[in-house]
C-alpha cells in the first residue's frame, strides 16, 4: 500500500516535470514566433532607410572613382533594368502568394531588401535613378508588404496554436496537481 502511494507520487512528480519542460519549450517557441512576426517590419524599415538614401541619389556617400567605374564596364540599359524589375516583382509576388496559399513559414524578407538595393544601385550607375526611383520604391513596398503580411499572419496563427497547446497543458497540470495527495 505504502509502495503504491510512493510510485504514484513519483509518477505525478515526473509528469509535472515533463509538463514544466513542455511549457518552457512552448513559451520559447512563442517568443521566437513573436520575434519572427516582426521581421517583415524590420525589413520594411531597412528598405525605407535605403530608399531615403536613394531619393538623394546616394549623395551622402563618396562617389566611386572613375577608374573603378570604367573597370566595371558599361552599365546595363534602362530597358534591361526595368524589364528585370518587372520580372523580379512578378516572381516575388507569385512566390509570396504561393507560400501564403501553402501556409508555409519559410523564407525571410531580408534578401528582398538586398535585391531592391541592387536595383537602386543599377539605376544609380546607369544615371537613371531620378526617373525610376518611384518604380523601385513601389516594387519594394509591394513585395515587402506582402511578405510581411504573410510572415505576420503565419506567425500569429502559429502563436495561437501554441497558446492553445499551453492552455491544454495548464489544464493537464491543474488535473495532475488536483490528484496530488495533500
Amino acid at each position: 500500500m505504502t509502495q503504491n502511494l510512493e510510485n504514484h507520487l513519483e509518477e505525478t512528480i515526473d509528469k509535472s516535470r515533463d509538463l514544466d519542460q513542455l511549457r518552457k519549450e512552448i513559451k520559447s517557441r512563442i517568443g521566437r514566433l513573436q520575434a519572427t512576426a516582426n521581421h517583415g517590419l524590420w525589413a520594411m524599415a531597412l528598405f525605407i532607410a535605403l530608399s531615403t538614401c536613394a531619393l538623394r541619389d546616394f549623395s551622402f556617400f563618396p562617389s566611386i572613382p572613375d577608374e573603378f567605374q570604367s573597370m566595371m564596364g558599361k552599365p546595363p540599359s534602362f530597358n534591361m533594368i526595368s524589364g528585370a524589375l518587372v520580372l523580379y516583382s512578378f516572381s516575388a509576388i507569385i512566390l509570396t502568394l504561393s507560400r501564403m496559399m501553402g501556409g508555409s513559414g519559410e523564407g525571410s524578407p531580408f534578401p528582398h531588401v538586398l535585391y531592391l538595393a541592387a536595383f537602386y544601385g543599377f539605376y544609380h550607375f546607369a544615371k537613371g535613378l531620378d526617373d525610376n526611383f518611384w518604380a523601385v520604391f513601389a516594387a519594394g513596398l509591394t513585395v515587402l508588404g506582402l511578405e510581411s503580411y504573410r510572415i505576420w499572419t503565419y506567425s500569429h496563427d502559429e502563436i495561437r496554436k501554441e497558446q492553445e497547446r499551453l492552455m491544454e497543458l495548464e489544464r493537464k497540470r491543474a488535473f495532475w496537481s488536483e490528484g496530488e495527495p495533500r
Partner: peptide, 12 residues
C-alpha cells in the same frame, strides 16, 4: 499584390 504590380508597371 494587384495594386503594387500595376503601379510598378505604370511607373516604369
Amino acid at each position: 499584390a494587384i495594386t503594387g504590380f500595376v503601379v510598378v508597371c505604370c511607373l516604369l
